[in-house]
């Protein structure tokens, strides 16, 4: 017999038991796990979508902020560059002006120093020259020389032009004041009377003439009338030469 009915019944029961056991231990837990995982995945996907949306939003916000920041940075940078440029130019100008001022001051100082040096040289040269001249003329001074000088002075008095004569006349009211004639040495009487005569003749008649000795005059003679003076001495020549020399040196220094 191919079919054993007890075995059939037993297998039937066995199979139903197997169905129940597998349902309990296999299908139910596995399907439950799959469902839960699917739910979790769906939740995670939804969450991911939300986060993605948020991230996109945040990205856009950040991008906007970044753009704004870039703009601000560029603007600030441009401002800073401009300010620096302006400041640099200002400082350069200042430095240039300072340098120019310093250069001018230096030039001025050098010029002054040069001028001072030149003046010093001139002054010393002049002093030396005049000291030598004075010394020589003092050494050479004598009565003959005084006589010659008196003659030259008398000639000068005779050759006074009208204006000079007029000035002398106005400077001295006749009979009130006195003409003072100063000389280095005591003039001889003959020379004194000749000078007095020439004054009375050429300038004003009846004038009082007083003779004085002034050793500071270098081989010279001068006529003083109430502040007005007619003179001839080597000192005057020397002073004139000195003036000419100073003027000439100043012109050279300026060049």
């Amino acid at each position: 017999m191919l079919i054993d009915w007890f075995t059939v019944a037993a297998q039937l029961v066995n199979f139903l038991v197997l169905v129940w056991l597998l349902k309990r231990f296999l299908y139910k837990p596995v399907l439950q796990a799959i469902d839960e995982r699917e739910k979790r995945i769906v939740l995670q996907l939804e969450e991911a979508e939300t986060q993605k949306a948020e991230a996109y939003k945040e990205r856009d916000t950040l991008r906007l902020k970044n753009d704004e920041f870039d703009k601000q940075r560029n603007a600030l940078m441009n401002d800073a560059v401009n300010e620096v440029d302006t400041e640099r130019r200002r400082l350069l100008d200042e430095a240039r002006q300072d340098a120019e001022a310093l250069r001018l001051r230096l030039q001025e100082t050098l010029r002054n120093e040069h001028q001072n040096l030149n003046e010093e040289i001139i002054r010393r040269t002049r002093d030396e020259v005049f000291a030598i001249a004075r010394k020589v003329l003092t050494d050479l001074a004598s009565t003959d020389l005084e006589t010659h000088i008196s003659e030259v002075f008398i000639k000068r008095l005779k050759n006074l032009n009208d204006e000079e004569t007029k000035q002398l006349q106005t400077a001295l009211a006749p009979g009130i004041d006195t003409f003072i004639v100063r000389s280095t040495f005591d003039l001889p009487v003959a020379q004194q009377s000749l000078i007095k005569h020439t004054i009375n003749e050429s300038v004003i008649s009846g004038a009082n003439v007083k003779f004085e000795i002034n050793p500071n005059l270098i081989s010279g003679i001068e006529l003083i009338a109430n502040g007005y003076k007619i003179t001839w001495n080597i000192q005057d020549y020397l002073v004139s030469i000195e003036d000419v020399l100073i003027k000439l040196l100043k012109e050279k220094t300026n060049d």
């Binding site: 597998l22 231990f25 796990a33 979790r40």
Partner: peptide, 16 residues
Amino acid sequence: LVVGSKLITRKLSTDI
């Protein structure tokens, strides 16, 4: 079948 299923489903994970 039952023991195998039980052993495997004993530590089922619902994680990914």
